[in-house]
């Protein structure tokens, strides 16, 4: 009996120490990992859409895509995943389309084509042939001897998926935008200092300066705005709420939806832009 209790206690202690060690490591690394993933996504989008400053995940008709916007919140492009049936099984690829409806990026993410023959479809020189194609173009590329079926699969697959995606997202996926839940907002790992950001308001640009200290927003100063005077006074309540709750998930003030939305967006955005300041 005594031995059993001793065994249990030792095992429990080992587990407790292990859990503590893991919790600490996770605490140190999780923010770095999350930030890297975000940056990777941003870098990928920025390469496809050079004017992109902001992006959002949107779902239209059961298909989700990442929709990119420029500094004036104008739609600049969409990145979505497509799939086609290849010679050896499904081929999955990422398709980037800009606001003019042209394919600007195509990368094969996963495939099971015959190694050495059909797998040319993943090569850059092959996918490059699809770039610049848009609605109404023929989606044919150079045939490759031995890989006829794989090439055909890509031709029909890219064309079909292009049409599916473009049909849903040619307007920036506005139908999917009702989802206003903000992207994850975290100040973990943000150095103390003052950051600035902007967003389009009801009448023009609203510029903000956000002061961060000890991982918290301590002050938000509006540096420029042209909103309707009495509405703006109400909209400013949003600022107080953001500081009080330390989140951008706050209620908008009725009658000032656009203005208060703009404030929220600007705060979110300067969180992203913080390394540029």
């Amino acid at each position: 009996m005594k031995e059993m209790i001793r065994t249990g206690i030792v095992l429990m202690l080992i587990c407790a120490v292990a859990a503590a060690a893991l919790a600490y490591t996770n605490h140190v690394t999780s923010a770095i990992i999350a930030e890297r993933l975000q940056q990777e996504k941003e870098a990928q989008l920025a390469e496809l859409f050079p004017t992109m400053t902001n992006f959002e995940e949107r779902t239209v008709d059961g298909r989700s895509a990442t929709v990119a916007f420029d500094a004036e919140n104008k739609f600049v492009g969409v990145l979505a995943e497509g799939q086609t049936e290849g010679y050896g099984g499904p081929i999955r690829f990422n398709l980037g389309i800009n606001a003019a409806g042209e394919i600007v990026g195509l990368t094969v993410v996963a495939h099971t084509e015959t190694p050495g023959i059909g797998d040319v479809i993943k090569e850059t020189w092959f996918t490059k042939q699809f770039l610049g194609k848009k609605s109404g173009d023929t989606f044919t590329v150079d045939a490759i001897s031995g890989a006829t079926d794989s090439v055909k699969a890509m031709e029909t697959g890219v064309e079909r998926e292009y049409n599916e995606i473009w049909r849903r997202f040619s307007d920036g996926g506005a139908a999917g935008a009702q989802d206003t839940s903000a992207p994850a907002f975290s100040l973990a790992g943000v150095a103390d200092g003052t950051y600035s950001g902007t967003a389009s308001g009801f009448k023009g640009e609203i510029a903000l300066e956000v002061t961060v200290a000890g991982g918290k927003i301590t002050a938000i100063n509006v540096t420029a705005q042209q909103e309707t005077a009495d509405r703006w006074a109400d909209a400013k309540k949003v600022i107080e709420e953001i500081i009080a709750k330390q989140t951008v998930q706050v209620d908008t003030v009725s009658g000032t939806t656009i203005s208060s939305d703009a404030i929220i967006k600007a705060v979110q955005r300067n969180q992203r832009n913080r390394r540029e300041v």
Binding site: T114, P115, G116, G146
Partner: peptide, 19 residues
């Protein structure tokens, strides 16, 4: 076949040896 699939499937017609 697993190493040089393209050489291993490079078939030619008899006599005139066209692909």
């Amino acid at each position: 076949m697993a190493s040089w699939a393209s050489h291993m499937t490079n078939w030619v017609r008899p006599v005139d040896l066209a692909t």
